[in-house]
Structures are given as C-alpha cells and as structure tokens.
Design a protein around this nucleic acid. Structure first.
Lengths: 132, 132
DNA sequence: GTCTTACTTTACGTTCGCGTCAACTTTACC
DNA sequence: GGTAAAGTTGACGCGAACGTAAAGTAAGAC
C-alpha cells in the first residue's frame, strides 16, 4: 500500500459519486486510473484530480473546460506552446470566476435582505391578526 | 408607455436571450408577460424577474430552484404557510451560496498560484534555452 | 467446482435547457 | 387589400452528464 491505491468502490464512497461517473470521467480523459488486470485502481494523483473535477463542477464549468484546466496542474509532458495555451484558458476562467465571485457576493446580500423582509411580512401578519 | 412595456424582441436584445428562451421560462412559470391580443408584452416586473433568473443561472441553480426563489421576491398573494416554506427554501439556497462563495474564493487563490507557477515554468524553460 | 461478489464493457434511456424547423396568425405599411 | 415583418404554438432534435439494465469476466469463500 505504498501508493495508497483505492478500488472504484472506495473512491465512490469517499467522493459520493457512482462508478458510472468515474468511468465517464475516464472516458472523457479527466482521470487515468491504473489497471490491475481488468480492475481500475486509483492513486493519490487520481484523487487530487477528482477533487478538482468536483470543485469545478460546482462552479459551473463543463467537463471539457475542467479537462483543460487540469492540464495546468500536471507537472510535465506538455510543450511550450501547449502550456502557454493552457495558461490563456486558465486566465479566462479566472476572470469568469472573479466576476462570479463578486456577483455572488452581491446576490448573497440581496437574498439575505429578501429573507428578512419576508420574515417581517410573516411577523407583521401575525401581529395584525393579534391586534386586529 | 406608462408601464414601459417591451416586445419579445426588445427583451431579447436587452438581455441577450432568444424568444425561445423567454417562452420556455414562461412555460416553466418563471415569468408572466401580459397578452395584448396574441402578443406578449413584458413590464418592469418581468424584467426584474428575468434579471434574477439569469443571475441564478450563472450560479448554477436550476430553473425550478430559481422559480422557488422568485416567490420570495413577490410581494403579495401567498399565504402564511407558503411564505414560511419559501423562506426555508431560500435559507437553504443561501447556505449553498455562502459555501460556494467561500469555496470559490479558495479556488481563485489556488488557480492564481497554478497560473504563476506555470508561467515560471515557461520563463525557466526559455532561460534554459538561452543559457543552455 | 460452484457460488457470490465486485468489477467490467456495451448500449440504450433520461433530464435539463434550450435550438430549430414548420405551419399559422397578427400587425404594420403602403 | 396585399404583402412583408414580427409574433404565435406545436413538435422534434440535441449535447451534456450521467442512470440503468444486460451480459460477461475474474477472484476469493466455502
């Protein structure tokens, strides 16, 4: 267990996904588990990538966008031009994320206000009944 | 023009959506334009709702979730129990949004670090070529 | 050895959020 | 009143991200 390999079931339990999902991500070339015979085995690297995949999904990125971003987290392999291209992609995503961050902050403030306003309506309505 | 009514085309141009999209939102009961004869006419309220719809979509909410949230922004009509239920939904959404906000902040820091690291790899590679 | 259990591939099905015709009706303009 | 522009209602199509059933394999338990 020098590499802390996990079976597909252990992965599913750990990350709350289904086997279908993991195989789907593999088909889309987002993760590359080893094969011991026919079975898949996931190592630390696969788990790190899956964490990033699930995070990306929560932010509304498509699997293809996530795949491109993951290249940025890979140490070697790509050539100069590829790295540069990936950086460009990443910078655009970063812009999107920062815009989304700001907007989300506003929306939170907004929603909070709406909630307390609605709460006031409730208590006021109650008071009306009591004093009416 | 006391209510600043807009045709579907004007709406599409103003919000960068297609007529199909607006009719789809109407079918899902997210907006309720008036009818002048057969044609739809959108007022200030419809535009406000559409703004919230598009914002919600950017945050990854489904149209059904958005529909529920929109009830919160509606002044009258609902009864006590309905308002209370809507507030519950809203609070859960708010939790999600705040979690997402925090996580997005981390992801931004993370991605920035990855980008500058990748940039360093580029410049280092260049230096290697120059000094090699 | 066979039974169970975990895993595999293949492949068709499903939901969401619209796109894209097709066929009609209005409305605007001359 | 004819015609073009804008709008209308179906209805089917489509890509993304899986769900799900079918059928096969491989390894350990007894």
């Amino acid at each position: 267990m020098s590499e802390e390999l996990m079976t597909i079931r252990q992965m599913c339990d750990a990350f709350s996904v289904t086997p279908r999902t993991l195989r789907f991500y593999e088909a889309r070339e987002l993760i590359f588990p080893e094969r011991r015979g026919q079975h898949r085995l996931y190592d630390r690297r696969d788990r790190a990538r899956l964490t990033l995949i699930l995070r990306g999904k929560r932010f509304g990125f498509s699997l293809e966008e996530i795949r491109q971003l993951l290249e940025l987290y890979e140490p070697g392999g790509a050539n100069h031009a590829q790295i540069a291209a990936t950086i460009d992609v990443a910078r655009q995503r970063l812009d999107d994320m920062e815009r989304q961050y700001a907007e989300l902050g506003e929306a939170i403030v907004d929603l909070k206000a709406q909630i307390s306003e609605a709460e006031n309506r409730l208590t006021t309505e109650t008071k009306d009944k009591l004093t009416g």
